[in-house]
Amino acid sequence: MSEVKKVLLAEDNSVLSLLLKFKLEKEGYQLFIAVNGKEAIEIVEAHSPDIILTDIMMPFVSGLEVISHVRYKLEIQTPIIVFSSAGQEEMVIKAFNLGATDFMSKPFSPNELSIRIKRLMR
């Protein structure tokens, strides 16, 4: 086992982020939580996480802007998983165009998320 993998979670639903924090920490990741896109960008710049999980619809700076910042401003290829809600298909397409790696549609199963993270980290 090398060093601990860092996960950034940008999500404005506090219960969901708490749930995922517990789950992923139990699986051995180090978690950074951002409640909006702006915080997410700050964390990316300060801690360079190994994977980014971000909701599309967030206050202040949307998930799309987070992706575009990571891919075009910082020019890094960290895997990014976006969370979308029903009816945001258009947004998901935009997210992929901007360079998102994977997406999960809410409501999703936390177990499935952790499997996808594992796969992307390999």
């Binding site: 639903n13 409501p107 999703f108 936390p110």
Partner: peptide, 15 residues
């Protein structure tokens, strides 16, 4: 409120 806040976002076992 708390239960729903999470339930609306997750599926499967957790839900």
């Amino acid at each position: 409120t708390t239960l729903l806040k999470l339930r609306n976002e997750v599926s499967g076992e957790t839900a």
